[in-house]
Design a protein around this nucleic acid. Structure first.
Length: 278
DNA sequence: AGACACCTGTAT
DNA sequence: ATACAGGTGTCT
């Protein structure tokens, strides 16, 4: 479900609600979702949420200087914020109960229909052991990222197509099926183009389009095609701005040509054959 | 680099 | 009954 804009929206919505709160207990309702690498079942109890960060599609909760809670929502994972004792429902897997200094108790429930999502409780020095996190490419919205860096990182996967390369979190972090298709459409680049074939000018345009799409999606609080809601159960609105994702056969918003669908990197890929020529 | 696996729900 | 869904780790 969630790509960079959705995870960022969860982070933004949760930050003012849980920063400074003290964890009372992390309760596991379903085995295999929580990976406690600290060696202590109660390691988090008594620790304070001192920071909420995002890296790619990972959400990182700093629990003081010596403890870290990392979450990946994968397809259908969701944090539900509650200020009343939550009634458990199907697919609730983890309950974190906290206490705010001046107010009362709050709860964070990790809910995940498909159970692909994961939560790790670990020491900060263990974070590098999460392979997917350690191998992430640069943040696409980092102002330090330049298009030549992007072009060279894409060129490392020169024998595959741009769709697959942009989905690979090691090239650039945070894009998934929706935002890769939207970025390539806005760039006017065919998703089948070889990853190493971009000119410097095309790479510059690609990065600018990627950033424009991601910023607009964050501003719209993410895309809610189906399941996605933030921690306060609020849907995003970027689905109303989608140009290609989910619009197979519908007319291109730029030229009217019916949008085409193909399968790349195992994922449905929608593009305009006229605006994104091979 | 690509197929398959992991899960459950929904649409056809 | 079958295909497909915002993702990614593990096997060819």
């Amino acid at each position: 479900m969630p790509e960079l804009p959705e995870v960022e929206t969860v982070r933004i919505s949760l930050e003012p609600l849980i920063l400074g709160a003290r964890i009372l207990e992390i309760r596991e309702l379903t085995a295999g979702v929580l990976y406690n690498w600290t060696g202590h079942p109660e390691a988090a109890s008594g620790s304070t949420v001192t920071g909420l960060r995002r890296r790619g599609k990972y959400l990182l909760l700093d629990l003081g200087p010596d403890l870290l809670l990392i979450a990946h929502l994968r397809m259908t994972g969701q944090f539900k914020y509650k200020d009343q004792p939550p009634a458990m429902v199907k697919h609730d897997h983890i309950v974190i109960s906290l206490e705010k200094p001046e107010s009362g108790r709050i709860w964070l429930v990790f809910h995940d229909t498909r159970r692909f999502g994961r939560i790790w409780l670990l020491r900060p020095d263990q974070a590098s052991q999460i392979a997917g996190l350690a191998s992430l490419g640069p943040e696409p919205l980092d102002p330090e990222l330049d298009s030549e860096t992007l072009r060279l990182r894409l060129a490392r996967h020169s024998r595959t197509n741009l769709k697959a390369a942009l989905l690979s979190q090691t090239v650039v972090a945070g894009l998934g099926n929706i935002y890769v298709d939207e970025t390539l459409f806005l760039s006017g680049i065919n998703p089948q183009r070889l990853s190493g074939s971009l000119s410097s000018q095309e790479a510059e345009n690609l990065l600018a389009c990627m950033q424009k799409i991601l910023r607009a999606a964050v501003n719209a609080r993410g895309t809610s095609v189906k399941d996605y809601v933030d921690a306060l159960n609020v849907r995003g609105s970027f689905q109303y701005q989608l140009q290609v994702y989910g619009r197979t056969g519908q007319p291109c918003t730029q030229c009217g040509t019916p949008l085409a669908k193909t399968r790349l990197a195992g994922r449905t890929t929608v593009f305009c054959p006229n605006c994104q020529p091979v």
